[in-house]
Amino acid sequence: MKDLFRKREFNLFIFILFIIFGVSWRTPSFLYINNFVDILNDTAILSMVAIGQLMIIVTGGIDLSVGSSLALSGMSVALLNQYHPGIPIFMIILISIAIGLLLGSINGLLVSRAKIPPIITTLGTMSIYRGLVFVLCGGTWVSAHEMTEAFRVFPRRSFLGISSLIYLSILIVILFLIFLNLTRTGREIYGVGGNKIASQYVGINLKKIQYIVFTLCGGITGLAGFLWVARYAAAQSETAIGFELQTIAACVIGGVSITGGSGTIIGVVLGAFFMGIVYNALTMINVSPFWQMAIQGFIIIFAIIINTVMDKRNQQLMLRKRSFNE
């Protein structure tokens, strides 16, 4: 039981329940099931991309280009849909994933082969990809009436009252839970983040791992690009600007160590859900949307301080236990 309380995910979960309780006390309509489905819809894309970001942060890197690559893949498929409306929707999805994989693998190659630190690589590709979006669309929008019906409706198409957007994000969560926890490569990702040098001595191929995480993150981001553009029924050069920070925030709130080595998918999903709940609650209790950014910043700082303090306490407890046993 004590161990449970020391888990970050559990604390975050308690905290989320606390917020739900507090808000629904003031506005009972917050508790409606429809409202929760709305929140899930709003956070589905964020939690998917945040899982990609998680893998990169776990290896000790960071990806600042996710917002731009999301926009680039979204814009590409939106234009494709506009000029070739005949292409079936599942081809569109595959193409968006392929574009994402390509953009991610460029990041991965620059980091693993050219040995440019991840923050610099993605800082550069962030501008480059964002610029390419502008070049592609020439500064204009692809708006709802230029997209086909099937394209626009896809994320909202629902089965048993739950949208395909949510199903897709659950699929991604399960796939990556298996990948990160049960496959050898998944465990190697954690190994690299824990100790780069030690992991190479035990035979982990650092270059390969770095390449894989950036490429996979790119793939998820590419899919998210299509979902984003279809859901909001608009593709423009400013799509998802600043989104990279939200994904990093979801990771940090979910207890992912920014220096690498630790972090779980459940934590990240809870982190994204937490952000969604806070935004939703703010509108529910009639707080101006201008407060959103400040509150997001405050939560990030608060979450990191809590994480760090708890970590240190846990380490001290472990040390004490060890010295006691000796």
Partner: peptide, 19 residues
């Protein structure tokens, strides 16, 4: 608190502009 600068300034970046 011994927190990496990127994490803290990421938060304060939102916080300051948010204010």
């Amino acid at each position: 608190f011994g927190i990496p600068a990127i994490a803290v300034t990421l938060g304060s970046m939102s916080l300051f502009r948010g204010i």
